[in-house]
Nucleic acid binder design. Structure first.
Lengths: 338, 338
DNA sequence: CTGAAAGCGCTTACAG
DNA sequence: CTGAAAGCGCTTACAG
């Protein structure tokens, strides 16, 4: 308890030096005698002194807080993503002496973010996803707040970091085509999420790379509910589509349910893949072919970028992280093709 | 941008009053002339002045930050709970002029929490779950940091708030028994989570209330993986158990998968219920009978309690929130009992 | 009702 | 290499 009230002035007095000296001994800035530094450091350690970061911040016009913007809407499938992101971010921040301040925003309300900025509680911000019409991003730009976006955006002024969703989807789709898929359907979520568009592009890239492929493909976007998926799947079965590509594990789960209800065997009668590998499908049988990203690493790097920016260092505007395609049972070449 | 640099001194000078007066006009503390106050307030609004909360904090020895402790381990089923909690907490905090600082802890590492406390970045803490051997809780107590725990604990000194898991499980189990269940099994997660124990107690309460009930019941705790569930279900089928009670939706999902694989009809041949209603099972067919809590409300109230404590108000040490039992198809009385 | 001054716990030119 | 002093942007006894 007592340590909590120990101040730099106490130490200075105790050691018979000035506050300036103590400050310098701790920060390492400014010239200071080796011996003096040691004396101070020993005292500090012995008494478990730790500086008041808030006061330090006030003097330096910094807060040592990073703002983390999280969507407040509930979408179960994305939750593991955000949690892992948070983990990576908060670890990296912690290691650099920063803490993470939370701002939850919804499509129409970014007041929590505004508060944090207005109250000067943060030095910079990490956005955890990008939208086509991105209110938080706009706000930060207008107010000159440094930030990095997890996700992609065409605005070349924003420092952004993302997994290569397009490349990943291109490769996965390519494998399906090369594996003999003749008719396939893509089911995706909201188009306002830029990641949705990138996945779609990757899907299409694969066809463009194979001009000789002749088959049928169709795309359903902005699909959000299980009911919609149900309808779509029903239609696809009538049209004898043989492969369903889902943009995320929630949609994939719905597709699997719909197929199960209708007694359609996977992969026997229908191949199914997901463009995102969360734990939602973990216990599914058969195991689902999908793409895996290292999300915690994404969080760590995003935070690292922001930290660099805050240090005044120049950073790459665009960072693209890798992916891993995991082929599993749901796309095993079917013994009796549909 | 300019507003961001506006200080109380600027306003004082501009208005020809002292900083003291400006400060008082804003805080409402201390006597001040109605006219002066109005002048200041008008200026403040016109120029979008907003005080530097950090400086204010330094002067008042407060931070206006609340620490939020979240588990860093990944458990998909609990994620919606924590997200909703966060939402409720951050909204309430925001409304009261506080921000939320994140600390992710794991079973063996609470360094992020320690950092936040040591750095004097927070005024109080909210714990989002309780454990039998709770390291974060112990740390906070030892360091005299005010906190409230979401969840229950026997330590009567800690301000705690929880949904009535025990009562909810008692009622749900009771309904199953009254509905004619003759042999049932309880499958639950880690015993170190106090919520697990409370659910188990509620389960047992129901039997004690019905001394005439004669049937078979068994309990499996510390079940964590799909494989384990598989084994258990297999055994239960051999023993002709007719009702499986799952402590959470993850376990329930595993149970359903196992039953499906073995072509066991729900509820026809087996009744299944879950003690926690997340969105994980949302699209399951049949719909699963379970218990529903208002988690965002839980977060709001927890935050409200902490805020009261910080204001020096006395609060109820123990708050118990309600629940809702949702009877669904998975427990419809079977037409041809097993 | 209002203000000058000291203080919150740090940092950092500036001078020595 | 070290220190006195001013400053970060607020609040708050104390005096008037």
């Amino acid at each position: 308890m007592e340590e909590r009230n120990l101040t730099i002035a106490d130490i200075a007095q105790e050691l018979g030096v000035s506050k300036t000296t103590v400050s310098r001994a701790m920060s390492g800035k400014g010239r200071i005698g080796e011996e003096t530094r040691k004396r101070v450091q020993e005292y500090v350690e012995a008494h478990h002194y730790s500086p008041n970061v808030v006061a330090k911040g006030l003097a330096q016009n910094k807060t040592f807080n990073l703002g983390l913007v999280l969507p407040g809407d509930y979408n179960i499938v994305e939750l593991p993503f955000f949690q892992k992101c948070m983990m990576g971010i908060s670890r990296t921040a912690s290691a650099a002496g920063y803490d993470v301040l939370l701002s939850m925003v919804t499509a129409d309300k970014i007041t929590q973010l505004e508060r944090a900025v207005t109250n000067r509680k943060i030095d910079g911000v990490i956005l955890t996803r990008t939208l086509t019409d991105d209110a938080p991003m706009r706000y930060l730009q207008e107010n000159g707040v440094p930030f990095v976006a997890i996700g992609s955006t065409e605005d070349v002024r924003v420092v952004q970091i993302d997994n290569d969703h397009r490349g990943a989807c291109r490769e996965l789709t390519g494998r399906l085509l090369d594996g003999g898929a003749r008719s396939l359907a893509l089911i995706g979520g909201r188009e306002e999420f830029i990641v949705t568009r990138n996945r779609q592009r990757g899907f299409e890239d694969a066809f463009e790379e194979r001009p000789d492929w002749n088959g049928v493909r169709q795309t359903f976007l902005n699909v959000e509910e299980g009911r919609e998926v149900e309808k779509i799947v029903e239609g696809l079965l009538e049209e004898r589509v043989g492969c369903i590509v889902c943009m995320d594990d929630f949609l994939c789960g719905c597709v699997l349910n719909a197929l199960q209800t209708r007694q359609v065997a996977v992969p026997g009668q229908m191949q199914v893949v997901s463009f995102y590998d969360s734990t939602v499908l973990e216990n599914r049988i058969p195991a689902i072919t999908s793409i895996r990203f290292d999300v915690e690493e994404l969080g760590r790097k995003a935070c690292g970028l922001l930290l660099q920016i805050l240090e005044g260092e120049a950073v790459e505007v665009r960072t693209l992280l890798g992916y891993e395609v995991r082929m599993r049972e749901s796309t095993k070449r079917s013994p009796r093709p549909y």
